[in-house]
Simulated scan of single mutants.
Amino acid sequence: MSDSRLVYSTETGRIVEVEKKSVPTKGDGIVRIRRESSGRKGKGVCVITGLDLNKDQLMMLAAELKKKCGSGGAIKQGNIEIQGDKRELIKQLLEAKGMKVKLAGG
C-alpha cells in the first residue's frame, strides 16, 4: 500500500504524526534580473526573480514595469518576464522602490 503509515509501535506506543510546515523561502532578499532567449525563437526577455510579493502585488509591479519599459511581458511561476533587453531600466526602477537588485548572467 502506498498510503500506509505507522500508527502504533510496541516500544513507544501510539505514534502521533507531526505536521510538516513548509515556509516558502524566496531567496536571499536580492532581486535578480537576467536575460533569456532560449526557447523563445531568438527573442530576448528579461526575467526578474527573487521578488517576495503576493500575487496581486506581483501583477501590479509587472503592469508598472511593462508600462515604464514600453513593452509586453508576463508573470510565469512567480517571476516577471519583460520583453526585450531592458535590464538597466528595470534595475533603476526597482532600486527606486528600495529593492536590492543584481544583474545576473551575461
Rank of each mutant, 00 (worst) to 15 (best):
C69G: 09
G105V: 04
E36C: 14
T25L: 11
I82C: 00
M59I: 07
G39S: 08
A74G: 02
M99L: 13
T10W: 15
E17Y: 12
L51N: 07
V7M: 14
K86Q: 00
E11W: 14
P24F: 02
P24N: 03
G39K: 15
A62W: 02
E11R: 10
M99C: 05
E19I: 01
L93D: 10
A96C: 07
R5S: 09
L103V: 01
K91P: 01
S38H: 08
K76W: 12
M60N: 11
M1Q: 11
G73M: 01
K55S: 05
E17D: 15
D52M: 08
K76A: 13
A74N: 09
K43T: 03
M99I: 02
Q92P: 00
E64S: 09
T49N: 03
S9P: 00
I80S: 14
A74K: 09
K100W: 05
K68S: 05
G84F: 00
S37A: 14
T49A: 06
K20C: 02
K97R: 06
E17H: 02
A62E: 06
V47Y: 00
S9Q: 11
G78R: 01
R40W: 09
M59W: 07
K102C: 05
D52T: 09
E17P: 15
S4A: 15
G50N: 06
R87M: 08
A62C: 05
C69H: 09
R5Y: 11
A74S: 07
D52G: 11
S71I: 04
K100Q: 11
A74H: 06
Y8W: 04
G39R: 04
M60S: 10
M60W: 09
K102D: 07
E11S: 14
R40E: 04
V31R: 14
S71Q: 03
K26T: 01
L51V: 05
K20V: 12
D28S: 01
Q92F: 01
I30S: 11
L51H: 12
G50S: 01
G72W: 01
Q92E: 10
K66D: 02
R87A: 06
N79F: 03
K67S: 05
K76F: 11
G42A: 13
E11P: 04
K100F: 05
E17T: 07
G29W: 07
K76N: 12
R5P: 00
R87F: 06
V23F: 10
K26I: 10
L51S: 08
L93G: 07
T10I: 14
I75D: 08
M99H: 07
I48Y: 05
V101L: 03
S71N: 08
K76P: 02
K43P: 03
D85V: 01
E19D: 15
K102M: 04
G70S: 02
K67Q: 06
G39C: 04
D56P: 01
K100Y: 08
V45Q: 01
K76Y: 11
K26P: 04
I33L: 15
P24S: 13
R34Y: 15
